[in-house]
Design a binder for these strands. Structure first.
Length: 493
RNA sequence: GCAGCCGUAGCUCAGUUGGUUAGAGCACCAGAUUGUGGAUCUGGGGGUCCCCCGUUCAAGCCGGGGCGGCUGUACCA
């Protein structure tokens, strides 16, 4: 094929490949999370990647693309299907479908890939993994409090103790504020959403930026203008007061919130729920890590009560020295309406999702031992010295494999030097060499590549390096397994 | 989507007022060493200078359009 006809090999933007080191590291991390979730009594359950589009949201497909932000396609019966964009909506479908058979409350967890057709960026992918736990069928705030405590325990178990905070708020309190400024009406849903999104940007834009978005609008640094919610200065002031209601203690925060929502029954209900959660958190000894923060709103519209967010508090810098913001590595909340869409009766539910990919990046950035532990050693490589002896090399490899040792013989077509380079690149602990000399003596040469590399540092010329044959020794062929085990135990215990 | 910046080898980049055959470092392959991974030296492969149109005797360089990337912003149910 001529060069002009070849296809450019590239992963679609926002999608990433993962190598052996990352795979092993994320396995370790997932195991820690799973351990914690199971300790809390959650059972694993997995749902499919693809759902009927209507099951994922309240939308119905209308055009070629039913919904921006979701990867969708049409089945041969013309029904619209979508790749799941989170694990919560599919779980709601699963619970509704198997409702009669499941114990209530139903407590389950799952890890899996989710897909969003959005603009990717650093730490933002179009395919990423979430680890999710939900309690379906309990309206008790104890279920919400438990989610927050489990989030804290999970991060502790990942070695992040003292480096995060779990923030809680309540949508009902926010509803109370919106009522108070007079935009709770039917026709004002759009405006409410704009207010919600503006508050969500508090950590990034600061109070001034949010005030602009609540009012007329805001111009960003590239000169682009974003239209605001159009609130009056007094209303803007009241919303900001709500986001800044956090006091020195939880009790103080709740007092402040009660003032902001006074007169709204729903707002006061929300404040009471927060007080109950705070009490549970306090008695369980999590009050230092799980705190009430009125600035947390979360973007998803389906939340109906308590919402929570896990945020890392440390800062790291990228290779250019710029600070990296990880922001939220997990979040969740109460979604009492989601399962009910499939059933005649309402079903209360609450859940928490960890953004696995983002948390993984964060753990790597702080060089956590869970993700930066040494890469798995490569296989023992049996060199092919004589092509007509492949059967005997195959036999050695089988012997090693039967002893539980990762091994392979060289399947390429290059000479010995290239085979050594191959073994080096494979991260092999040692190579097995048997040419005619060794074969006549019934022996094999074993070269310890790790030890050899150390010895190399001390040598100057290549002639010296070759003559010394560092870390290389000969054993009888039937002692192959024992000798390789010696080398392995020397380096990996 | 909107705005700003950018696009030369696998990677990071240089390339003069527009001027002959477009370069470097790293990486890769080979040889020095016909049986030894490092280091050193020597050589080699690799380019639609993002694409198209235009200006010009002449375009990697200038102009227009398109595509792609990065950053900000919006969206993220």
């Amino acid at each position: 094929m001529s060069k002009a006809d070849t296809i450019k090999a590239r992963a679609p933007r926002g999608f990433a490949d993962r190598g052996p080191a990352d795979l092993a590291a994320s396995e370790r991390m997932l195991a820690k999370i799973r351990e914690t979730f199971e300790l809390y009594g959650f059972d694993g359950v997995e749902t499919s990647f693809v759902e009927y589009t209507e099951a994922l949201g309240k939308f119905l497909p209308d055009q070629d693309r039913p919904n921006e932000g979701v990867f969708s396609f049409q089945d041969d019966d013309e029904q619209w299907l979508s790749l799941r964009y989170d694990l919560t909506a599919p779980l709601a479908r699963f619970v509704a479908e198997n409702f009669d058979a499941l114990p209530k409350p139903y407590r389950s967890y799952r890890a899996g890939w989710v897909f969003r057709n959005e603009k990717p960026g650093p730490g933002r992918f179009r395919q990423f993994m979430q680890f999710d736990a939900d309690t379906v069928g309990s309206a008790s705030v104890a279920a919400d409090a438990e989610m927050c405590m489990m989030a804290a325990d999970t991060l502790d178990n990942l070695g992040l103790a003292g480096q995060y905070v779990i923030k809680i708020n309540n949508r009902k309190v926010l509803d109370g504020v919106l009522e108070a400024i007079g935009i709770a009406g039917e026709g004002q849903a759009g405006q409410r959403l704009t207010v919600l999104r503006a508050i969500d940007k508090l950590d990034r834009l600061g109070a001034d930026g949010v005030a602009q978005l609540l009012g007329e609008g805001r111009k960003d640094e590239s000169g682009d203008f974003t239209k605001g919610a159009g609130l009056s200065p007094a209303a803007t002031e009241r919303v900001l007061a709500f986001t800044q209601a956090q006091g020195a203690t939880g009790a103080e925060t709740i007092e402040n919130l009660r003032k902001v929502v006074s007169g709204s029954a729903r707002g006061e209900e929300g404040a009471t729920e927060l007080a109950e959660i705070a009490a549970l958190v306090e008695t369980s000894g999590y009050a230092d890590r799980v705190i009430i923060d009125p600035s947390v709103v979360r973007g998803l519209e389906y939340y109906t009560g308590p919402v929570y967010e896990a945020e890392l508090t440390f800062q790291v810098q990228d290779e250019d020295g710029r600070p990296v913001r990880f922001g939220s590595v997990g979040g969740g909340g109460r979604y009492d309406g989601l399962v009910g869409r499939f059933r005649p009766e309402p079903v209360p539910a609450t859940g928490f999702s960890i953004g696995v990919s983002r948390l993984f990046s964060a753990l790597k950035a702080v060089k956590s031992p869970i993700v930066s532990g040494s890469e798995q050693p490569g296989p023992v490589v049996v060199l092919v010295m004589d092509k007509d002896q492949v059967a005997s090399y195959q036999r050695m490899v089988s012997t090693l494999r039967k002893a539980g040792i990762r091994a392979e013989f060289y399947l390429g077509s290059s000479g010995m030097k290239a085979q050594m380079k191959y073994a080096d690149k494979r991260n092999s602990p040692c190579v097995i060499i048997q040419g005619s000399n060794e074969r006549e003596r019934g022996e094999v040469e074993i070269k310890d590549l790790i030890e050899g590399a150390k010895a190399a540092a001390a040598m100057g010329s290549n002639a010296e390096w070759k003559a010394a044959r560092p870390a290389q020794f000969s054993v009888a062929e039937d002692k192959l397994v024992d000798a390789v085990r010696d080398v392995l135990s020397r380096h990996f215990g």
